[in-house]
Structure formats: C-alpha cells, structure tokens
Design a protein around this nucleic acid. Structure first.
Lengths: 211, 211
DNA sequence: GTCTATAAAGGGATAGAC
DNA sequence: GTCTATCCCTTTATAGAC
C-alpha cells in the first residue's frame, strides 16, 4: 500500500473522490472559485461531471473539501521544528526560515489568495484557515517566547504580541509582492537574508537588559 | 460647484459615468469580481445595462476603472503626515497610527481582498495597487529612516528593510484576522496599543548604541 | 458509480427605437 | 446617451441508460 493510499484512507476518501479532489484543487487554486468551472474540474480529473457530483454535492461543497484539505497540509507543515535544545537565536532562525519558505510556496500563496477572496461568502473556511495556520504557528512561538522569558533569556512581557511582531517582520512585504506578481527575491539567499535581519532586530528589541 | 463635482472633473468622468462607477465600486467590493454582475451594477446605479456599457466597454474595463480609482484614494491617504519637525518616536507613532487606521478600514480591506484575488488575471492592476499603496508608504518611511540614520538618531543600515519590518510589526495578524472575519480589536485603543508596542520594539532594535 | 445528454438559469454584451 | 428587449453562451446541476 502506497503512502498516497494511506493518506487517502486517513482522510476517508475513495480513490475516485481523491482523484477528483486533487484535480479540483489544481483548478480552483489556479483560477479562483468564480472562474473555475465544474466542467474543467471533471475534464482535468478524467471523469464526467455527473461523477463529480456523485462525490461532491455542489461546487460549494467541493470548494470546502479543498480548503479543508489544504488546511490539514498547513497544520502539518506548521508543526514546529524541534528547537527544544536550541539557543534563542538558533531557534528563532529555524522557525523563521521554516515559516518564510512555507508561506512563499506557490501552493501556499494560491490557497491564501482564494481563502482571502472567498471568506466573506464562506466564513467557516476563513476560520478553519486561520486556526490551522496562523493561529497555530503564532501560538507555538508565543509559548516558546514565554518559556524563554521565564528562563530569563528574553525580556518579553506580551509573548503573543511579540510573536506576531516577529512573523510580521519576517513577512515584510514579501508575501504581498508575491501575491501581486511584483518582483521579489524568494531565493534561498533572499529568504535567509530576511530571516537574519528579522532575528537580529527581534533580539535587539527583546534581549534582556543587563541586570 | 460641489467638492464632489470638482473631484469628478479632475478624474475626467461625466456625472453619469461617475454615478455608475460609484455604484459599481460598492458592488464589486461587496461581492468580488466573479460574483458581481453587470445587472446588479446597473440596478444599483439606477440606469440600464446598456448605459453602463455606453460608459465602460466591458466588465473588465469597469473593474480596472474601479481599482484605479481606489488606488488614487490610497495614494492620497498615504501622503505622509507632516513629521518633519518631530522626534523619532513621535514620527514613528504618527506614521504607524495613520497606517493601521487606514489599512483596517472596511473599504481598504475590500479593495485589498479583490485585488489579491484578481491580480493573476489582471497583473497590471496588481502593479498599480502596489505602486500606489505599499510602495509609496514603505519608500517614504525608508527615506525618513535614512535621514535619521544620517543624523545619528537611528542605527539603521538598510532603511528599506527596516521600514518593511516596522510596517510588518504594526500589522502583525491584525489585517489577516479582519480579512478572515476573525475577531480582532480594531478599536482606537486596540490600534494605539499595537502602535505603541511596534514603536517601542523598533526603537529598541534600532536605537543608536552609545558611542 | 459512471456515462451521455439535457434541463434551467444567469450573465455578458448588443440591436434598435427614441 | 439612454432605454427595452433580446441574443448567445456558459455554468450549475440532474435525468436516465448501463
């Protein structure tokens, strides 16, 4: 049994439903909810439209399944790298690099775009997205910062806010430029540079003052 | 002649075209490009669909006119507050408050959402948006930071990057939460708190080291 | 479950009268 | 310039055969 099969079973989908879902994900990410048609999805999946409707009762339901699937990916990718034994700077560096690499992926950008676009009409999906991505990662860093503060290795009195500041500094306008098609340096070197700068600024801002 | 008339003439639109454009702006911001129909625009503007097409040759052209108009608003709103004679902290504080208040406006959020959503299909509009908003404000702060660095009042060696970090810290997840319909404190007090925290962190990060 | 064929509705765009 | 009425196409969704 292949890894793909195991993953499919975990999500409780038949092979056909999974095949449709994969194709639909491509189409919706590529064209957006409004421009994507069920005809295109069916063609891309190599089945008829009736078969699509046999597995997903409507375009809205299909879209919801897609977003939920991508959110599970997010939640897995956001699982914190192992930083327990690391120093403060090293931990921030690894978290930052992980974060930037992930959010600047074409796939991440695509799901971000479509969730932002449709969240007024699908409020539940906006919530799911936030909870399975930004909330997790901010919460984890927040907890980590709190621990460091207790250990006297950082001078942070509002860990949740400091965590958001850190990720905000990391992002800068990078993700926005990618979303808008503006030139942006998202090479490994460019990302590393942004991470170094953010970590350095964060540490200067929150390093403990000498006693 | 009213202020609205003068503004209209400046943009080179007839009264009718302006009336249509206003209604269309509401509709497109409210429903997004795909879900908005020319029928709805016409009804909302109180004219027939043929009249809409007499002024805007297609739905795409109408959308482009809307985005361009909103971008002009952005460019005006982003005109830096007068901070020439201010101290560093006070200047950052005023810039930050201005920025957060503006980007968290329902209108700003709506145009942001629709531009992000449609920028793959309207690349030019993505560029216009970026140039008339984020690029202007980041550029202005960058220049300001460079001046402060030259004057020895800040220790910044990459002003453009520092400017993006500042705005990133300000934003945190606030705009994202608003876009996704998650609860967020966007009251004056909430914004003031975010601004204070960002300014304080930024100054700790970039205050000149004692000589 | 899967296909072909089609129903039913809506939307972009235009013709022609005024 | 503006309106009414309409064309024409696409899209969602389903009926019925296998």
């Amino acid at each position: 049994m292949s890894e793909a099969d195991r993953q499919r079973q975990r999500s409780g989908l038949s092979a056909k439903a999974d095949q449709i879902l994969r194709a639909a994900t491509q189409v919706f990410m590529d064209q957006g909810y409004g421009a994507a048609s069920m005809d295109t999805v069916a063609r891309r999946a190599g089945v008829s439209k009736a078969t699509v409707y046999a597995h997903f009762s409507s375009k809205e339901q299909l879209f919801a399944a897609i977003v939920r699937g991508e959110c599970r990916r997010h939640a897995r990718a956001m699982a914190a790298p192992d930083i327990a034994a690391s120093g403060v700077e090293d931990a921030l560096y690894r978290i930052g690099e992980n974060f930037l690499h992930f959010i600047l992926t074409p796939r991440s950008l695509a799901i971000f775009r479509v969730v932002i676009a449709e969240s007024p009409r699908f409020p539940e999906l906006g919530r799911i997205f936030y909870e399975s991505g930004p909330a997790i990662i901010s919460g984890e860093l927040s907890a980590h910062l709190a621990g460091m503060a207790r250990a006297g290795r950082l001078d942070v009195d509002d860990p949740a806010l400091a965590a958001e500041q850190f990720f905000g500094m990391l992002r800068g306008n990078l993700r926005l430029r990618c979303l808008l098609g503006e030139p942006a340096d998202v090479s490994d070197a460019g990302i590393e540079r942004a991470v170094r700068a953010a970590v350095a600024a964060f540490l200067r801002a929150y390093a403990p003052t000498a006693p």
